[in-house]
Design a protein around this nucleic acid. Structure first.
Lengths: 97, 97
DNA sequence: TAAAAATACTCCATAGGTATTTTAT
DNA sequence: ATAAAATACCTATGGAGTATTTTTA
């Protein structure tokens, strides 16, 4: 699973529109459409209702949003721990490498 | 982040060898090499020491392994919740769609 | 009918494989 | 010398963009 799809999911849930989400993510609107369709097919669940005014979370989408945010939080913790580890690890090289 | 890289990470940590990990994951050995290199570059941390006998977790790798497993667990929970939601959601259509 | 989303199409990047070379003890 | 990992190279898939069409309250 590509966690970028989950980021797109959370931004679309917050903005309520594919076009607005695309702008915030610096992506094309069609790319957001494909991200969400890919995620919906992967999970086997419809996440949004597409209305003329924008995108509205389904009931399932609302519940899965929390789980998606937990994944993104876990990734953030992994990256934070890596930054810590990177700061203290590494090799000290004297002279030519 | 592609969580497949994290799966490769955990399998390599358990098997202790690129070739063995590749067999378990049904991937080529070179693909495992690239997965781990990609992850190491992404996180900025060396995860394994490559020894003639195989791959050994670095100290940083050992600590990050737990964080990686948390991500994979969160993904598993997302999938489980999706399976639940998928079972009870969906549309009932009478007649032609 | 007017917005917003989906689709069609194209291009380029990259993921993965095979075959080979390099490495480290 | 030998087992294991890294590299080189190639192909096919798909990710992302632009332009256009379709949808629905």
């Amino acid at each position: 699973m590509d966690t970028r799809l989950l980021t797109t999911f959370t931004v679309l849930a917050r903005t309520g529109g594919f076009t607005a989400a695309a702008a915030e993510l610096h992506l094309a609107q069609s790319t957001v459409t494909v991200h969400i369709r890919t995620l919906e097919q992967d999970l086997g669940v419809r996440l949004f209702d597409r209305l003329p005014g924008g995108a509205l979370l389904t009931d399932a989408g609302r519940r899965l949003l929390e789980r998606a945010e937990e994944v993104l939080d876990a990734v953030a913790r992994l990256r934070a721990a890596s930054a810590e580890a990177g700061a203290v690890s590494g090799r000290v090289v004297i002279g030519s490498p």
